[in-house]
């Protein structure tokens, strides 16, 4: 397997009031690095406001990142010019004179890449234009990228796509309001598939759907991945769904990646105190297990991202927090093979 998408030191700050030197920023995503292998599904979980959606959007450059480097299929599509190149062991590469090698400032034209990278949004009620027919919504991408030479072929392609997501040809002339939530989400997926992409960011694609419909859509994502060889970045707050669909999972807290591991490893052998409490907080749909399991209930709320705590951002709610946590930011390091975590007290936690 080879790397399809690589994100290095991605930062996304949003201005939030203040003037001049007092200008404040919400650090929605703060120094996040990960890579996605071809054909795999990387899950991204976290509470609201932790920056998971922003990560997905910045990665597609729907927001222009503040800093970082994004590589797609070995081609740099964004580089802010201040991210050093690193070798496999994480050390900065140096040139002959011993200076750290930085990338060249880049921001490529995204249009050709939009054919390869697509997104499915969370809210199927808000992400479809109510004044366009479903056929036109799906066909718009075909027009923009000039994928169909004739009207007939365009129509055929639309029908093909609708059938691919479990709708049929008569749906093409209807408007979004005529569909249920689950069907609308299928339209959203058909739209993403219209350009024959390799990589899709799924931004909470099932959280707006009814329970009985969620499983249908999850299965469809799996089928499409198998038949079209897709790669997913699957963003959700529901860890049980993410665990089901992902090969690897990253956990985010206040703009930082705190743990990243294989999904089985993460769910059964997590090392970060936040991940552990997140897992234990999920209500289990089994009365006996639920009664016998002990919840680690976290105290307090997520701090404001406008002025996050110093050092480790989780320390205000962490039962293991010490002075060191306030002073130093923990490094995101490899704990065991392929399992990364950022915490000072991993030995105490385990």
């Amino acid at each position: 397997m080879s790397e399809l998408v690589k994100v290095e030191h991605l930062k996304q700050y949003f201005p939030a009031g203040g003037f001049g030197s007092k200008k404040k920023y919400v650090k929605a995503v703060d120094d996040v690095s990960f890579s996605i292998q071809k054909g795999e599904t990387l899950g991204l979980v976290g509470e609201s406001g932790c920056g998971k959606t922003t990560t997905g959007r910045s990665l597609l450059r729907l927001y222009e990142p503040t800093a970082g480097r994004i590589t797609y299929e070995d081609r740099v599509i964004f580089d802010s010019g201040d991210v050093p190149y690193t070798d496999e062991s994480g050390n900065s590469e140096k040139d002959q004179n011993g200076n750290i090698k930085y990338g060249k400032k880049t921001a490529v034209n995204m249009l050709p890449y939009r054919r390869k990278m697509q997104i499915v949004f969370q809210d199927p009620y808000a992400s479809l234009d109510p004044r366009m027919t479903v056929g036109d919504i799906v066909g718009e991408a075909i027009d923009i990228h000039k994928l169909a030479p004739s009207k007939k072929e365009r129509y055929q392609r639309i029908i093909e796509l609708l059938e691919c997501v479990g709708l049929n040809s008569e749906h093409a002339n209807r408007y979004p309001h005529e569909f249920s939530g689950g069907q609308r989400q299928r339209v959203g997926i058909a739209r993403a598939l219209a350009v024959d992409p390799q990589f899709i960011v799924c931004d909470e694609p099932i959280s707006a759907l009814d329970v009985s419909i969620q499983a249908q859509v999850v299965n469809m994502f799996e089928d499409l991945q198998e038949s079209m060889g897709l790669t997913y970045l699957f963003i959700a707050h529901d860890l049980s769904v993410v665990k089901h669909i992902s090969n690897r999972i990253g956990v985010m807290y206040l703009g930082k990646l705190v743990e990243l591991a294989d999904s089985y490893e993460l769910c059964f052998h997590s090392v970060h105190p936040y991940t552990r409490s997140l897992i234990s907080a999920i209500p289990i749909a089994d009365p006996v297990t639920a009664r016998n399991s002990k919840r680690i209930v976290l105290e307090g709320d997520v701090p404001s991202p406008l002025n996050p705590p110093s050092g480790c951002r989780f320390r205000t709610r962490c039962p293991y927090a010490t002075e060191q946590c306030a002073a130093e930011e923990p490094v995101f390091r490899e704990v065991s093979k392929g399992h990364f975590a950022a915490c000072h007290h991993l030995d105490k936690v385990n």
Binding site: Q214, A215, Q216, V218, N219, L239, S240, I282, T289
Partner: peptide
Amino acid sequence: SIPRMDAKEHTRLIPI
């Protein structure tokens, strides 16, 4: 149809 957090292996969901 709900994915189980404590499932050890990947089993396909059975939707309604």
